[in-house]
Design a protein around this nucleic acid. Sequence first.
DNA 1: TCAAACCTGTAG
DNA 2: CTACAGGTTTGA
Length: 279
Amino acid sequence: MPELPEAQTIATDLDSKLKGQAIFQAKVFSSSVINKDSDLSLLLHKPILGVERKGKMILFCFASETYLLTSLRMTGQFLFGDFPQGMDPPCHVRLAFALKDAKGTDENSGGGALLYRDIRKFGRLYVRQGEDYVQLLNSFRQGTDALAITLDELMDKLKGSSKSIKSLLMDQYNLAGLGNIYATEILFSSGVNPIKPASSLKKEEFQSIYENMRSILSKAIEERGSTVDNYEAPFGKGNYQNFHRAYGKAKGLCPICHKPFSLVKEAGRSTVFCPNCQK
DNA sequence: TCAAACCTGTAG
DNA sequence: CTACAGGTTTGA
């Protein structure tokens, strides 16, 4: 699921708990969530140096230039818990990593476990060594991160396209990190109709989108992301859903003009907007 | 550029 | 029962 703020929250939670830990055992319950060129044994007994976010992806950095990259897609989650002993895991847990302190010698010292849970099994985990992870990120068509891009770069990338502004904001190749929730919110706050071709936007509209993108994403990170459906980070759910003004409110009224919202399908995703305020 | 596929759950 | 769900890739 996670879009940028949720991925950031998950990465930060994981980083604070996993740094200095190592995995000493991996148990796989659903092999389909692991990329088939990936060898989980490469991760064993290597200290975890840190966990970062790249766009919507989570990147675990291990010693010896070893990396675990994960795309959580719709329903992937990382949680801390007990290492499952038997053959049947907790509900929807697809993968379990038994943890220990990287400096410790006692493997049974009760470091707990990192669990990968994924209801729909859309998420994917990839193991890479050396610089291959950069190549892998490129193969995912990851563009400039939404919190790192400049206004000029954003305009250069989008303004020539006749595709709708919303589909471009959600295309990770242009801009990495936004999905349906945040693209919907950003366009609402900017007063821009999501269906408009990017090439028809004025400079002030791009500027508004850019500024709203930064403020909305920052605020959402402060709130630990949006809890829609089953999103949950290792240290708990987010609160930003309480700040949504358009996403998920198709049956409500626009908070600005109090007229009904419209609901359309754009680029295959449901899109809420106010036809009165978003021209 | 659009639909289908990957899966499972939940709301209506 | 049917429709729909935060994402991404694939193929028509």
